[in-house]
Simulated scan of single mutants.
Amino acid sequence: MELLKTVSSTATIRFQDCDPFNHLNNASYINYFMNHREDQLIKAYGIDIYDMARKLGKSWVSNSNQIAYIKPVFLMEEVHIESQLIAFDTSNLKVEMRMYNKEKTHLKAIIWCGFTHFNLLKQQKELHTKAFMSLFQTILNPIEESQFDNRVDQLRFSSTKR
């Protein structure tokens, strides 16, 4: 079975995640992105990061986030979220996630998340196993842009052409 390089899901924006203007709260975007990625890791790749943490004492921790809010997301709006691994090395991952309206005609937000493989028992960075390195090589879906702001501009431009 061929593994997906880009995974996607939908979510409905809930009341508790919105500000008084019925917009998705800026901090809540990250929760929707992270929930999407965690669910898709299990579904698409069989990786349960919480089970790994319990059984092996190893998982990934966030080390950076770069986010751009493009268009507002509203209460009870259904959004389409997709993500892909855009870079990795022996201990780190970089994932791009994009949030669109349900029809994928309007980009709502984009985030680049950095993760470090971490040994929770030793409280130190951990090297990826050979199996993980092989998986990451298989699902890697790099992008041309290496600068976040340039990527945001590229996606904004391409979404206006739809």
Rank of each mutant, 00 (worst) to 15 (best):
A44Y: 04
I81T: 02
K130W: 15
A87K: 13
K104R: 13
H128R: 05
G46N: 00
E103T: 04
T105F: 10
S64N: 10
F118A: 05
K108E: 02
T129P: 08
M76Y: 14
V61L: 01
L75S: 04
T129D: 02
Q40N: 08
N26T: 07
M133T: 12
S59C: 09
V79F: 01
S64G: 13
Y29H: 08
S64C: 02
K104S: 03
D51S: 12
N65G: 03
L56Q: 14
C113A: 14
K55L: 11
R98F: 13
E96A: 06
L121C: 07
F118K: 02
Y100Q: 07
G114P: 01
K108H: 06
N26C: 00
Y32I: 01
D39M: 09
M133W: 14
E82H: 00
E78Q: 00
D89Q: 02
I49Q: 06
I81S: 08
H80M: 13
S62E: 15
N26A: 05
M99N: 04
L56D: 14
F136I: 09
K43H: 06
M97W: 09
K58P: 06
H106T: 09
P72W: 07
N65E: 13
Y29R: 13
F136W: 05
S28T: 00
K71Q: 12
A44P: 04
S28L: 08
Y29D: 02
R54W: 10
I67Y: 06
D51C: 06
A27F: 11
A44M: 09
I70A: 01
N26I: 04
W60S: 08
K71V: 11
L120S: 08
E77W: 00
L85Q: 04
K55G: 09
H106F: 12
I110S: 07
H106Y: 13
Y69F: 11
L127W: 15
N63I: 13
K122M: 04
R98S: 13
M76S: 10
L120W: 11
T138I: 14
L41P: 09
E38Q: 11
K122A: 13
A53C: 12
Q123M: 06
D89E: 00
Y69C: 12
W112I: 09
A53V: 03
C113P: 03
L93A: 06
S28D: 08
D39Y: 04
S62A: 14
Q84N: 11
N92H: 15
L120E: 05
S62Y: 14
E38I: 11
Y29L: 01
D89V: 04
Q124V: 06
Y100T: 05
T90W: 15
F33T: 04
E38N: 11
A44N: 00
F115I: 04
Y50T: 06
I111N: 07
N25I: 01
Y50E: 08
W112N: 11
A109G: 08
H106N: 15
S134R: 15
E96L: 12
L120F: 06
H117Q: 11
S28V: 01
V79R: 05
E96Q: 10
I49M: 12
Q137F: 05
T138Y: 07
V61P: 09
M52A: 03
W112F: 10
S83I: 05
F33K: 07
F132K: 02
E96P: 09
I110C: 01
D39R: 03
N25P: 01
I47V: 05
K43M: 01
L121N: 14
Q137E: 13
